[in-house]
Amino acid sequence: MENQKPIIATASLAGCFGCHMSLLDIDDRILNLIELVEFDKSPINDLKKFTRHCDIGIIEGGCCNSENIHMLKEFRKNCRILISVGECAIMGGLPALRNGIPIRECIEEAYWQSPSVKGHNPEMILPNDQELPMLLDRIYHCHEIVKIDYFLPGCPPRADLLYDALVSIITGTEMKLPYEVIKFD
């Protein structure tokens, strides 16, 4: 029976880990969840790579660089059901405030102009290590890149919404959606 438990993987792309925090906010129900599922690649257990095919993938955050896109595609390949969690994954969220501002302008502001760096970077160095992932021209939300099966809005999504969604998918029951759980902030 043990290996028949559904397997969950999670990732935070261009997000703040708030949605993962909200997942932990289900409090003692996390013990029920552990009964129901196993975790694979996730920051929660610090597994860096997929070890097997997963049933549910939870994506927090949109895509701001090439590494995010790579990771998202990996998740799509390795997960049967993919869920966009939180405003950043659904519509870009706060990182998407830079959409419309040229990338050069963003980088110069971050490394040359903003009050905390002005005068502290006399050689005008911009990060250029080849190991660094390339920034994208704008933020792409997840369903622009791959097919997403479900969306859970919120900033972060309420713990009850996350828990109920997972339980509904795992047990195959219809989800209750009380008014208080669907919020965009």
Partner: peptide, 19 residues
């Protein structure tokens, strides 16, 4: 936003334009 909550909008079915 309140209408979106009332209609249980989880995501927009249309592409974002980010004007």
């Amino acid at each position: 936003q309140a209408l979106a909550y009332r209609f249980q909008m989880m995501v927009s079915r249309f592409p974002y334009t980010f004007p």
